[in-house]
């Protein structure tokens, strides 16, 4: 053996060591791989009273976060960065509100809530369709287009609330019309928790199945991993990318409809501010793994509700919670490194 090589080889009798990775602990016990993502949100939730955080509020807050995080995670697995959850959510809420106002009469009671949800999902889907079209037809990077469309969506919601969707009985106030009683999401017993969490969990399971267990999910992962290999392998890259972004937008739009039917009951400016961005942080925190998103969303919802308390007690603005959330995500990003970022050394 040449001496030059000897320096790079480990000393005899020593196994090469690698850096400690907490995920090794999970990998060593097979069942924990399944149990951990399901148990973690419950553990966080049970610990909430220790920090004097309202448990019910955390569930209702985690609901939109789960969905907006899935709206980031699903396209991310196909190699897309969807930062448009914020706008897609608002447009979804506006679509549901418009449905209640213009088509809500005469719909059977049982169908009202599902149709509201559908309207929201379609609204979000169409909105993300703008970014998807810009990407496929004009090669516009989706990160930038979805970001800019958020500002457009906020203004567009303002336009609708001041115009077509304005409550005629509100006089000077620009505010949406109260949605009918039949369109409200029912609540669990005497609590303030609405059924949206069930929808969010069902969608989580659906996205997990789609990504991890379906043929389309496999194709999407290939596209995300190496588009050139996917193209040569006969996978329609453009179509896969388009579908992933549209589905993401649809999920975020659903979150908007849930917020409207479960919390807000009428469209207003400033509703759900930051929910899309928090979903983005949540998805990156858990590396876009759908199974872990409820855990991440519960943690961020706890921080968000705690932030509401701070806002009331200390007069700090709601955006203050971004400091803690962004810091967590930055630590995760720093620890994990990346597959898409170019390796820069020296």
């Amino acid at each position: 053996m040449k001496p030059a090589d000897a320096a790079t080889l480990p000393a005899p009798g020593k196994t090469p060591t690698r850096r400690f990775d907490p995920r090794d602990l999970l990998a060593s016990a097979g069942w924990m791989k399944w149990a951990a993502p399901i148990a973690t949100p419950f553990v966080i939730w049970l610990l909430l009273p220790v920090f004097a955080i309202d448990q019910q509020a955390v569930i209702t807050r985690a609901t939109p976060f789960i969905l907006t995080a899935l709206a980031v995670a699903l396209p991310a697995r196909a190699g897309l960065i969807n930062v448009g959850g914020e706008g897609q959510l608002l447009i979804g809420a506006a679509a549901a509100g418009a449905f209640a106002k213009f088509a809500g009469d005469g719909i059977p009671l049982i169908a009202m809530v599902p149709l509201m949800m559908l309207a929201g999902a379609i609204g979000g889907l169409l909105w993300s369709g703008i970014a998807a079209t810009l990407k496929n037809a004009f090669a516009v990077n989706e990160t930038i287009s979805t970001l800019l469309l958020n500002y457009v969506a906020t203004l567009f919601l303002g336009y609708l609330i001041h115009g077509a969707l304005k409550d005629k009985e509100s006089f000077g106030f620009a505010i949406g019309e109260q949605i009918p009683e039949s369109a409200r999401l029912p609540q669990f017993g005497e609590t303030t928790v609405h059924f949206g969490i069930l929808i969010a969990i069902a969608v989580t399971a659906g996205v997990w199945l789609l990504i991890e267990r379906s043929r389309w999910g496999f194709k999407a992962q290939v596209v995300g991993g190496n588009p050139e290999a996917a193209r040569r392998g006969g996978i329609p890259v453009g179509k896969t990318v388009m579908v992933a972004l549209l589905l993401g937008g649809g999920i975020a739009g659903l979150a908007g409809a849930i917020e409207l039917c479960g919390i807000e009951t009428r469209l207003q400016t400033g509703m759900a501010t930051g929910f899309g961005y928090i979903g983005f942080l949540c998805s990156w925190m858990v590396a876009h793994r759908a199974a872990w998103i409820p855990a991440g969303a519960t943690l961020l919802a706890a921080i968000s509700v705690y932030g509401d308390n701070l806002q009331i007690d200390l007069g700090l603005p709601a955006s203050t919670v971004y400091i803690l959330m962004a810091a967590i995500v930055l630590v995760v990003l720093a620890y994990r490194g990346s597959s898409t970022g170019k390796a820069i050394s020296r």
Binding site: I81, Y277, L281, W284, M325, L333, S338
Partner: peptide
């Protein structure tokens, strides 16, 4: 070696 787009956005939120 963190992802450039995600890191940039997180820095913006910070």
């Amino acid at each position: 070696n963190a992802d450039q787009l995600a890191t940039g956005l997180s820095v913006t939120f910070l």
